[in-house]
């Protein structure tokens, strides 16, 4: 009841029509933000994108065929911290409408066919559990089977602690699958979005034939807080951001969201033909 009231109040004020940019504090009309692919029209800050929206912005209309949408997580360790893992899963599923943090399928990107997948950060931080690892692996195997390129939009805090070692080994599983794809001469474009850290970066994230980052995206192995605590010093300006990685030779390109589709299609075309 209380929640309902609060929501109505928000509506009256028209708050849900507007969104505030985290970077420049500008208040933006939501329809305007959506039209701009959720990039701040004033400062260029790239808002996080839900997986479905990401695929919607990327894949040619009507061409996406989702695969393995029926994979669901379970609780192999019977993990409990302050909450039980199944409870956390249920909450995440209700919030996102997804079964887990990764969706993939086949589709066309400006006419170029590919296997395409995207992470959902709002599902437990896009963490790499058994389902995500399995689906990423199947996406890689699917690309190999269908002789298609692979495009993965990563957005993840890394491992899923609640699945313990089974989460960790997904790094090896996905990387082994990529070793096979690589031998087939099929391109894999890894797109790193804000934030991509931990086990995802340290496996398929950094294994792209071409690695593209979105502007300003935080990309790294360890998170900045952990590093700061370890070294006890302030971190360099722009540390672990997309532009910093470009400067240090760790990614091929930094591409704005509105150009992303075009750049991916162009690279696929260049590598396919």
């Amino acid at each position: 009841m209380a929640i309902f009231k609060k929501k109505r109040k928000k509506e009256e004020k028209g708050e849900d029509l507007w969104e505030r940019c985290k970077a420049c504090q500008e208040v933006i009309l939501r329809v305007e933000l959506e039209r701009n692919l959720r990039v701040c029209p004033r400062c260029g800050f790239h808002f996080p994108l839900p997986a479905r929206k990401r695929l919607g912005f990327t894949v040619d209309e009507g061409s996406f065929q989702e695969l393995d949408g029926d994979l669901s997580p379970t609780d192999p360790l019977r993990f409990k911290d302050t909450k039980r893992y199944p409870e956390r899963l249920r909450e995440a599923q209700e919030k996102t409408g997804l079964r887990d943090a990764f969706i993939y399928g086949t589709g066309l990107i400006e006419g170029q066919p590919a296997v395409v997948g995207a992470f959902e950060f709002s599902f437990l931080g896009g963490s790499l559990g058994s389902v995500v690892g399995e689906k990423v692996t199947r996406a890689i195997e699917e690309a190999r089977k269908r002789r298609l390129g692979l495009v993965i939009f990563s957005c993840s805090g890394g491992a899923r602690m609640q699945e313990g070692i089974l989460s960790l080994v997904q790094m090896a599983k996905t990387s082994a699958a990529l070793a096979r794809l690589r031998k087939e001469g099929l391109p894999y474009l890894s797109i790193l979005t804000d934030p991509t850290t931990g086990g995802v970066t340290a496996s398929f994230g950094m294994l792209g034939d071409i690695i593209i980052a979105e502007p300003g995206a935080l990309i790294g192995f360890a998170g900045p807080r952990v590093i700061k605590e370890t070294i006890g010093e302030e971190l360099p300006k722009g540390f672990q951001r997309a532009e910093y990685l470009l400067e240090h030779g760790l990614v091929d390109l930094v591409v704005e969201r509105k150009e992303m589709r075009k750049v991916i299609a162009k690279l696929l075309d260049l590598l396919y033909h």
Binding site: M171, A172, S175, A176, L178, A179, R180, R182, K183, T201, A202, S203, F204, G205, M206, L207, G220, F221, A222, V226, I227, T230, I231, E233, L235, P236, F239, Q240, H248, G249, L250
Partner: peptide, 26 residues
């Protein structure tokens, strides 16, 4: 664990780990 430091990140800690995973598999 792998060292979480500035130099480690700048020199591609994640890439180094990922590459080992892939190469050891083959």
């Amino acid at each position: 664990g792998a060292y979480p430091g500035v130099g480690a990140e700048e020199r591609g800690q994640a890439e180094a780990i990922a590459r080992n995973l892939r190469e050891m598999a083959s």
